[in-house]
Design a protein around this nucleic acid. Structure first.
Lengths: 244, 244
DNA sequence: GCGTAGAGTCTACATCGTAGAGAAGTTGTT
DNA sequence: AACAACTTCTCTACGATGTAGACTCTACGC
């Protein structure tokens, strides 16, 4: 019972080391992953770090900035090699990687999709713009005119995000149930108004997102390559050649 | 100064008519359109209607249900004619219509995209599922096998949503500025790290979303038609024929 | 020692969603 | 007309949230 009883309370993991932006953002991401976006409150995050919530404001201007930081952190998991000469293969790989990142952090996807809507391009977190810059680089180096590279990027990334949203929507699964009708709650739909949807229950149930993404990307890439100035490289001669 | 001074305060438009779900949702949509999603609070909405905020709970279980109602209301602006024999034309028109709806209600787009992520298919507001059902119907009637219809729907709707998100992201415009670099805030990007993006400023500036959507849809539809069981109808023989 | 700067904390406030009790208004029965 | 059974609307109150502003603590150069 000395007055110096607990200068170091040994309470849990954190020993009151200096806080840092990385530590905070990792904790935030962990919180979002496990308990959802709404669980990411300043107070809760502070508690998770064993710190006063107000301390966080030294590392993130406000809650929105925290959310941006989490987006950035997740997007940093995406590796892009802008020097790969085979642009189609590279784009295909990126698509699959991003899909898997999304599946790993489903609760972050609304952020990825929504935050840019309220921030002009140039004010976005830089980490968020890196994929755009690097993919442009990839395409331009592959022979596309810059403006065409932008078109390709837009179609490609648009479809990619759309697919991810689609797949996550159907991923809401109650693992207890394995009857598709029940698992997706389709039995609540009036059969009169939704005959098609209800009839598709079994197909909906075994959705192979990876295959579907791959197929969509194939369609898009070959279509784009055929329609825009085809790059000069040789890695894609087979595909473009076939369509000209 | 009689005690019965103002039993009817004649304050503004509403004369205390009966409330209704439609009235509430319209007011909510108007509020979101003009002041953004965050402005849609129970208190603010109540004030807009000249009513006590608590009254709203008789027509919407909670705020989330209100948001769902707004999504539904907006999606109801979308007309679909599932009996059109020319499925490609129909899908193309729907895409353009939905794009315009999104441009009309940009603040609602996050809802359209995000809400389904937290609600299993069968529990979503029915109005939200109507497009899905009707497009399935359109495709099946056009000759697609049900499972293929679903694939087509997914690729199509995925791309469509992706495009809308893309376009809205770049639509953040400060109408005072018309230099693209400034308007999009691109001047804040370090030239070292983002040479490609900065060089594309003028191209970014005159983004023709409608044309780009149309082109993407063309690529997708013809690709899909070529890859899946082509429908029996004649309206699309030209396109599918060309690719086989 | 002692001052200075940065990091961390405390207190306080406006605002939010919403539970629960009650008031007011409407309708049907006698 | 009087009452009862409703639906609809309002009031009050509570806990939670983001964050401003003042305070305390710690480390370090002189």
């Amino acid at each position: 019972m000395s007055p110096e009883e607990n200068p170091v309370p040994v309470t849990g993991p954190a020993k009151k080391k200096q806080l840092s932006r990385e530590i905070i953002l990792s904790a935030a991401l962990a919180l979002v992953d496990s308990d959802g976006l709404d669980a990411l409150t300043m107070r809760r995050l502070g508690q998770e770090l064993g710190r006063d919530p107000m301390g966080l404001y030294r590392y993130a201007e406000n809650r929105a900035a925290l959310l941006d930081g989490v987006s950035e952190l997740v997007l940093n998991e995406l590796a892009i090699f802008p020097d790969d000469p085979d642009w189609q293969a590279q784009l295909r790989r990126i698509a699959h990687d991003l899909r898997e990142i999304a599946l790993r952090h489903p609760n972050v996807v609304p952020l990825l999709v929504t935050r840019p809507l309220s921030t002009p391009l140039g004010l976005r977190p830089l980490g968020t713009l890196r994929p755009l810059e690097q993919i442009l680089s990839l395409l331009i180096d592959a022979g596309f005119a810059p403006a065409d590279a932008l078109h390709v990027y837009r179609a490609y990334y648009g479809y990619l995000y759309g697919h991810i949203l689609n797949e996550l929507q159907e991923f809401i699964v109650d693992p207890e149930e394995n009857e598709a009708l029940l698992r997706l709650g389709l039995h609540r739909l009036p059969p009169k108004d939704f005959p098609r949807l209800r009839a598709l229950a079994p197909v909906l149930a075994d959705y192979d997102g990876e295959a579907e993404l791959d197929q969509g990307i194939s369609i898009l890439l070959s279509g784009l390559a055929a329609r825009l100035s085809p790059p000069a490289g040789s890695a894609n001669a087979a595909l473009t050649g076939k369509l000209i």
